[in-house]
Nucleic acid binder design. Structure first.
Lengths: 218, 218
DNA sequence: GTCGCTGATTAGGCTATCCTAAGACCGTCT
DNA sequence: AGACGGTCTTAGGATAGCCTAATCAGCGAC
């Protein structure tokens, strides 16, 4: 696998994330994820297919080949290791590290990646709780539910936040809604209304949208 | 100063290094340093001039403006901090870090740069002994001579190595010719012949070329 | 079966960056 | 002076990205 350009890597990573759930992606999703026009995404998908990173049969939508998936996992690994480094070593706030990591991940060689992982104690998750793929690109995730899917009375532990927008992360941190925190759902308003949660003694009303981005286990 | 592309940053850094000694650079030197053809270098110089990073008067050769110099110094700073990080924190060998740092330096934001510097204890030099510019782009260098300029009987301390090719660095490390090591010149063969040096009890014959890349103080 | 929507692709263009080949410029040597 | 050699720039062309506008393809609604 020759060196890929930064741009190609970014597409690959985006497609990896889009197809994580097993369902193939569409050109439109890729375009949205990358913030480019559909023709641009279409063109890049064509190239990734030619490079053997995307499955050849266009009938089933966009899906990565084994090679493509491995490369994508490696990028996600580097991204999350970078975030871990920025938080654990450089002491940066968790809402700032995603953007930084987007740039860093493309600058890490396999050698640096390996040493960084070792130095960090081979962390299992990024600061937002998402699992870091191992060196072979394997990603062992336990089944999670969005907080918005819980019923009143349910208790669970926050596992990760699936969106890394700085303002959302700052908001969640201000409420103490961090990975590995216990939450209890008190009530769920009908018609997509707010979810009332109790966390560390305090009670907050979370918009359904926001609650959908918080994944819990247990 | 808007975001510069990686390519532009690389040119800027190369020109910064070429003009470190006060003499302006030529298009040919830039082309050589970047490993591109003269027209490519010429074109980029034109653009850097338009961007106000290179002095306007083309008569005196290529010289950076105050802005250009500041930007160049910041890049050198990031490069050398990256090297320091790779050696001090990730424990990489000194001959491997230059290439890694070339990629890393473009991925560091001012914020990360500052935290990294602090975390490393604000190092004064990179692992090869070269001075790291401070946050304002100031570079306080003491006057140095190449080892090849010493006379028999002279003693000095190695300050830095000016070329970062992996094989040269491995060679020097194998002889113990590292920054801050004492060396004594025993003899200098005529007609560009080898320089006989004593270092930590041992004696080695260094090619004049190689000796010219080792800068000493004292 | 055809209309029309949605999503994907083709067409045609722009910029940045690279190249080679061909001029232009300039100082030197005869 | 005039030819020569080195250095720089212009010309012309490639590729990777990106864009908009227009076309095409599939599919549900009538």
């Amino acid at each position: 696998m020759g060196k890929l350009t930064q741009s190609v890597e970014e597409y690959l990573e985006a497609i990896f994330k889009l197809t994580r759930d097993g369902t193939p992606a569409t050109v439109g999703q890729v375009a949205d994820a990358m913030g480019v026009s559909p023709p641009s995404a279409s063109e890049m998908v064509r190239r990734l297919r030619a490079a053997g990173l995307i499955e050849d049969d266009r009938a089933n939508g966009i899906d990565l080949t084994t090679d493509g998936r491995a490369e994508g996992a490696r990028l996600v690994r580097r991204h999350r290791l970078s975030e871990r480094f920025l938080v654990d070593v450089l002491d940066m706030p968790w809402d700032a590290v995603h953007d930084e990591a987007c740039r860093l991940e493309h600058a890490l060689s396999p050698e640096v990646e390996a040493r960084l992982a070792a130095q960090l104690g081979n962390p299992r998750t990024c600061p937002h709780g998402q699992v870091i793929p191992d060196e072979d690109g394997e990603l062992d995730e336990e089944p999670l539910r969005p907080l918005s899917a819980l019923e009143p009375g349910d208790e669970a532990t926050i596992s990760c936040v699936t969106e890394e927008k700085a303002d959302l992360l700052r908001y969640l941190a201000s409420l103490g809604l961090l990975p590995d925190t216990e939450v209890a759902v008190e009530s769920v308003a009908p018609f997509g209304g707010p979810v009332l949660v109790r966390v560390e003694g305090a009670q907050y009303a979370l918009g359904r949208e926001v609650a959908g981005k918080i994944m819990v286990r247990g």
